[in-house]
């Protein structure tokens, strides 16, 4: 479903990705690991069209993403749920409104928005906190609001970049368990994490990057 074909990404004089070829199947859950600076974020950014490959092809759902331009980019991103290391919540509005944002963009009826937002907050264990401001939550809770926002529109693919980067081990394990739960109901999950101790305990494919090259986990 997602296929990197000899993808390279070059920044000025630095190769962030070199000749990366990789397949990720529908409904698979994979971890992307490697030291800081290995190119994990760059791969995810290419997938989200936040950046474009210097060479090679990235094919998603049979479509070369290089052909996705202009207004289509926003539409393309709506098929993904994205979880950020720094959660990217908006503190000028309630938890409810934060989680509702993707539904507003997609154009759901307010009645359905309420139902879905509560369902998503229920999944991450924050039902009942809708009207609070996300600023009053702990780091782990904020990350869970971020996850609720990522899944509220039922994306086919959930992408997370270091979602546990700022959390202690206990909370990190909880967050990973949450991703596994989404994987079990058929969502394709891609998680970038350098926390090898944590991800090697979970039995999913681990793709390893080193200085922009794939060094492990290419096959299954």
């Amino acid at each position: 479903m997602i296929s990197f074909e000899r993808v390279s990404k070059r920044f000025e004089r630095h190769d962030a990705l070199r000749d990366v070829s990789l397949e990720i199947a529908r409904e698979e859950m994979v971890f992307l690991t490697g030291h800081s600076g290995a190119g994990k974020s760059t791969m995810l950014r290419l997938l989200m069209l936040l950046d474009r490959a210097t060479s090679g092809r990235l094919v998603v759902n049979g479509k070369d993403v290089a052909t996705i331009r202009g207004r289509q980019v926003a539409r393309y991103r709506q098929d993904f749920g994205f979880v950020f290391q720094d959660h990217q919540l908006l503190f000028d509005r309630s938890i409810f409104d934060n989680v509702a944002l993707p539904l507003d963009i997609a154009g759901f009826h307010p009645r359905d928005v309420g139902r879905r937002v509560r369902a998503a907050l229920d999944k991450v264990g924050l039902l009942g906190r809708e009207s609070a401001n996300p600023a009053v939550l702990s780091g782990g809770e904020q990350q869970r609001v971020g996850i609720a926002r990522a899944v509220v529109a039922r994306p086919k693919v959930l992408v997370a970049d270091e979602p546990t980067g700022n959390l202690d081990p206990g909370l990190s394990a909880e967050i990973m368990a949450l991703f596994e739960a989404f994987h079990r109901v058929g969502v394709t999950v891609i998680v970038a994490s350098h926390d090898l101790a944590l991800i090697s305990r979970l039995r999913h494919r681990i793709i390893t990057l080193k200085e922009g090259r794939l060094v492990g986990g290419v096959g299954r």
Partner: peptide, 23 residues
């Protein structure tokens, strides 16, 4: 934490309706 909480299978409304609503 349960990833399978069921709720109605509703999708986005027609583009024009939601466009007006957002306006």
């Amino acid at each position: 934490m349960n990833a399978t909480v069921p709720d109605a299978q509703v999708g986005p409304r027609p583009a024009l309706v939601s466009w007006f609503d957002h306006h």
